[in-house]
């Protein structure tokens, strides 16, 4: 397995044919996944760098995840409450919003917000390191860029995504509760319907989804960053591609995970 294919030489031209470009992306992502798995099993973990990334991906993303989730919960409640209250189903609003948040909205919002905030930053940082020869400098010091740059980000994301998703769940349901209150739905009825309509696996399934999203965001962003070619413009392209590809893959994976985890329940 040729690990160096992950950080292609500057001289290697970027394919212009979309099919060739897609194959290069899939190949490089597969190589990175394989190399990361092997490095994780064999090598040591850069604890300091992993903690630093946990702060960056987790703690620093928490406010924005909480804020967007709260507004999303509020707007979903706005629509569902106005419909359900009219037909006498106001008692189901809490459960409906909790179900939507735990199974779908919280994991997706976590994935999207972290992609926008951290995926772009990871691709830009690694891309800049690549074009300024800092990745080569790591290799020259006999340190694997996968060990030092990729593994800490993957581990940090795997640890922090479920926590961020929990924050999104609480904020979303909290935002929904505020709006439900305005529709005259009591706190007791709101909580009662959550207990009635949701079960622990709704929460667990959503958290499982975030683990897959964590892998997608970090691996795609690292792959795009390490594969940067073409100077400053190349860093810009890598950053854009990292965000777009991560989001598309998150939505695609979400469908299959929803089918796998919840379709039969």
């Amino acid at each position: 397995m040729r690990e160096e294919l992950v950080w292609l030489d500057e001289e290697v031209r970027r394919p212009t044919n979309p099919l060739q470009a897609s194959l290069e992306f899939v190949g490089a992502l597969g190589l990175l996944l394989f190399a990361s798995g092997r490095a994780l099993l064999q090598g040591r973990i850069e604890v300091r760098e992993t903690l630093h990334q946990m702060a960056f991906i987790g703690a620093a993303s928490a406010p924005i995840v909480a804020l967007t989730s709260a507004f999303t919960g509020a707007v979903v409640t706005l629509y569902s409450a106005s419909l359900l209250v009219d037909v006498g189903g106001g008692g189901f609003v809490g459960g409906a919003i909790a179900l939507a948040m735990t199974r779908e909205l919280a994991p997706i919002l976590t994935g999207i917000m972290v992609t926008a905030r951290c995926g772009s930053a990871i691709a830009a940082q690694l891309g800049t390191m690549k074009i300024t020869e800092q990745v080569d400098a790591l290799r020259a010091l006999a340190v694997s860029p996968i060990q030092y740059l990729v593994i800490p980000r993957v581990l940090a994301a795997l640890a922090m995504f479920p926590l961020l998703c929990m924050i999104a769940n609480f904020s979303g349901v909290g935002g929904g509760w505020v709006v439900a209150n305005a529709f005259g739905i009591s706190a007791n009825s709101f909580l009662q319907s959550i207990r009635l309509l949701t079960e622990p696996f709704d929460l667990i399934g959503g958290l499982i989804k975030t683990l897959v999203f964590a892998l997608i965001v970090t691996l795609v962003s690292c792959q795009q960053g390490l594969g940067t070619r073409g100077g400053a413009a190349g860093v810009g392209h890598a950053t854009t591609r990292a965000v777009v590809l991560s989001m598309v893959l998150i939505f695609a994976a979400n469908y299959f995970l929803a089918d796998l985890l919840f379709a039969t329940r």
């Binding site: 300024t132 020869e133 800092q134 400098a137």
Partner: peptide, 16 residues
């Protein structure tokens, strides 16, 4: 082998 070689890059390539 790389531990036996030192490389000084064109723009130093210091970890910023």
């Amino acid at each position: 082998m790389r531990l036996r070689l030192g490389i000084v890059f064109q723009y130093a390539a210091l970890f910023d």
